[in-house]
């Protein structure tokens, strides 16, 4: 099971969490990208902060087999 927990207004669009049962290891960022597209959230992953639940960054090229839970929030605030 892989779960993404959303903070702030992302939670009001996607719900506080999305958990998926996956049959294979998937790239975490690609998976989130697909999720955003399917829910019509007009953001790309480079506009998100994706971390482990304790705030540490996810390892580069992390897959859903490397991490089970991520915390997702908007990166760019302002501008």
């Amino acid at each position: 099971m892989f779960c993404a927990y959303f903070l702030g207004n992302l939670a009001s669009q996607l719900g506080p969490a999305v958990c998926l049962e996956l049959g294979e290891c998937m790239d975490v960022l690609s998976l989130l990208d697909e999720l955003l597209r399917s829910r019509e959230v007009p953001l790309s992953v480079d506009e998100l902060l994706v971390t482990l639940p304790d705030g540490r960054p996810i390892p580069p090229r992390a897959t859903t087999c490397d991490v089970e839970e991520v915390r997702v929030l908007r990166l760019l605030r302002g501008g």
Binding site: L49, T51, G55, R56, P57, L76, G78
Partner: peptide
């Protein structure tokens, strides 16, 4: 703020 990353780093 545009170049900031997550709190841990």
């Amino acid at each position: 703020s545009f170049t900031s990353v997550e709190e841990d780093t």
